[in-house]
Simulated scan of single mutants.
Amino acid sequence: MFVLAKLQDVVRIPPWLFDKSLNEAIAEELNRKLANRVLYSVGLCIALHDVLSLEESFILPGDGASHTKTVFRYTVFRPYVDEVLTGRIKSCSNDGVQVSLGFFDDIVIPPTSLQQPARFDEAEQVWVWEYDNGKHSLFMDPGEEVRFRVAAETFTDTTPAGPELTTADPAAPAADPAQTQQRKTPYVITATINEPGLGLLSWWSNLG
């Protein structure tokens, strides 16, 4: 679930951190910059593990901060495909089930990856497993613990882009770039529970 990613960056240390040791100041700045941030094709950054090397620091003209090229290792959340994890159901919709690990919420179980046969209960807004040919309706209520297998991962580049050229009606209102950016999710895990032993933990304790 967690891996060490070897990264490189030029770390800017502002003057008010000069009273700290270089390693301590760099660690503070790297965690401030990266913690809880998704790096494209790397994963969700959790915390700095260690600093591997530092090059000579320099100060740019007109900037009182120091700049140091740094090679370091960062603890990253990025489960491998087929890894089995346990989380809690955050919500259900016609599009599937959203699962949370507490620190990461972008885990989606599509309808086709649920225990089958399954149906969406519009009144309760939850998915239901029709166990034993419909003799038992097992509800997937929010807050319940669920065991799932990672089926795929999707990274989306959310780097802000420049204005797009368009031939649309100039009188039409322009799209808000900020709103367009907010709709993007940088890292999504697609999961499945359509296997024996997967799904709500309570199912298997009760069925056993």
Rank of each mutant, 00 (worst) to 15 (best):
R12S: 09
L7V: 10
A65Q: 04
F103C: 08
G143R: 11
A178G: 05
S137V: 12
L207P: 04
K6F: 12
A123M: 11
S93K: 06
T68Q: 02
L201F: 03
A175E: 11
I107T: 05
A178H: 05
F120Y: 15
T158P: 00
M1R: 08
E28T: 07
A25D: 07
R73A: 14
S113F: 10
D157A: 12
L17M: 13
G199S: 04
D121W: 15
E145W: 09
S205I: 14
S21V: 05
F104W: 14
A118K: 06
R119C: 11
A171C: 10
E144V: 07
I109T: 01
A27W: 07
P173K: 06
A118D: 09
Y80H: 14
G197H: 05
Q98K: 11
D176C: 08
Y131Q: 09
P79K: 01
T68V: 08
I13L: 05
L201Y: 05
K135N: 11
Y80V: 15
P111H: 01
T180P: 03
V108G: 03
F2R: 14
S113W: 02
A152R: 13
Y80T: 15
L201W: 03
S93Q: 05
A161D: 15
A174N: 09
A172C: 04
E122W: 11
H67I: 09
N133K: 15
P173M: 10
D82P: 00
A35K: 11
P196C: 07
K33Y: 12
T75V: 15
V38P: 00
N194F: 05
E130C: 09
T158D: 01
K184H: 08
A174Y: 10
S137W: 15
D82V: 12
W129I: 05
R149P: 06
N31V: 01
T156C: 10
L52P: 02
S57D: 08
P173N: 08
T190Y: 05
Q125P: 08
E164V: 13
L198P: 07
S205C: 06
A171L: 15
T75W: 07
T159C: 11
P163E: 07
Q182K: 10
E55V: 03
A151S: 13
A123K: 13
G102Q: 04
E124Y: 09
T185V: 14
Y40I: 15
V38R: 00
D105W: 02
V76F: 01
L201V: 12
T159I: 09
E164Y: 10
V11D: 00
D106C: 02
W203D: 00
P142G: 06
D95K: 14
G43D: 00
F58E: 10
F120A: 02
T75L: 15
V3N: 05
A151D: 11
P79S: 09
E55P: 00
E124V: 15
S91V: 04
V42F: 01
T156N: 07
V126K: 01
K20W: 15
S57H: 05
W127K: 00
I13Q: 01
L44C: 05
H136Q: 14
I26S: 00
P14L: 08
D50S: 14
D105N: 12
F77N: 06
F103W: 07
D132K: 14
I189Y: 01
P14M: 06
N94G: 12
S57E: 05
F58G: 04
L48V: 09
N36I: 03
V150M: 10
E83H: 12
W204V: 08
D132P: 06
D169N: 13
D132Q: 14
